[in-house]
Simulated assay, not measured.
Amino acid sequence: MAGSVQFDLVSPERRLASVSATEVQIPGADGDLTAMAGHAPTITTLRPGILKALSSEGAKSYVVTGGFAEISATGVSVLAERAVPVEEANAALFDALIAEARDAAAAAEDKDAADKLVSDMLALRASVGQ
């Protein structure tokens, strides 16, 4: 595939993707970004959001809760804290993620960051329609 990057997505539970993609849309902690062939080397942390890979097989979207993305001119490697294909995401999953975020916020010293995490989880749930 001309103008493609090797995209790999793994979580502690499993490998979710390993495809040649034309672009990968990433929910970076400092804002959304799109990685394509020729991208400058970058490492970013992820915020809760939707990660999308476009390939010859079509678009595939994943719910991610955090982690890291390493981007180079020829590849995108994402190590996610948690990741599931959007079609596998359900209300029970989001209830558990939001409860965990609220528990972490209650115990956190940095209340602003903890509140942002809860807010990001609620926005992620709304974006998936759960």
Rank of each mutant, 00 (worst) to 15 (best):
P48I: 12
A96F: 10
T65M: 08
T74R: 08
R14E: 11
G31N: 09
G49W: 07
D115H: 03
R15E: 10
V86A: 07
D95Q: 08
G28L: 02
E13G: 00
S119I: 00
T34S: 10
L79P: 00
L79V: 04
A80N: 06
Y62F: 11
A17K: 04
S18H: 14
Q25C: 04
S127E: 02
V118T: 04
T45D: 01
T45V: 01
R47L: 02
E13D: 03
V84G: 02
L117R: 14
D115R: 06
L93M: 15
V5W: 13
A99T: 11
S77E: 14
S55M: 07
R125T: 00
A108E: 05
H39A: 04
K60H: 05
G38F: 11
S11D: 10
D112E: 08
G28Y: 06
A105E: 14
D115W: 10
A21N: 15
L16T: 04
G66M: 05
A69S: 01
L33P: 00
E100W: 06
A89I: 09
K111E: 01
L93Q: 11
K60F: 03
A107C: 01
E88Q: 13
E109C: 00
S11W: 07
R125A: 01
I50A: 06
S61G: 04
M36T: 14
P41W: 07
S4E: 14
A37E: 12
A17S: 01
V128S: 09
A99R: 11
E88W: 13
L54S: 06
E81Y: 13
A40V: 12
R15C: 02
L124K: 14
I71D: 04
I50L: 11
S18L: 09
S127D: 04
A107N: 05
M1Y: 10
L79Q: 04
G129T: 09
E70D: 10
D103N: 14
V10C: 09
K60N: 03
S72E: 06
S18N: 09
A126V: 02
S119R: 12
V84A: 06
A21H: 15
T65V: 02
V24F: 14
A53M: 06
I26H: 05
A40F: 09
E57G: 03
T44L: 10
G3K: 12
D8W: 15
K111T: 02
V78Q: 11
K60C: 00
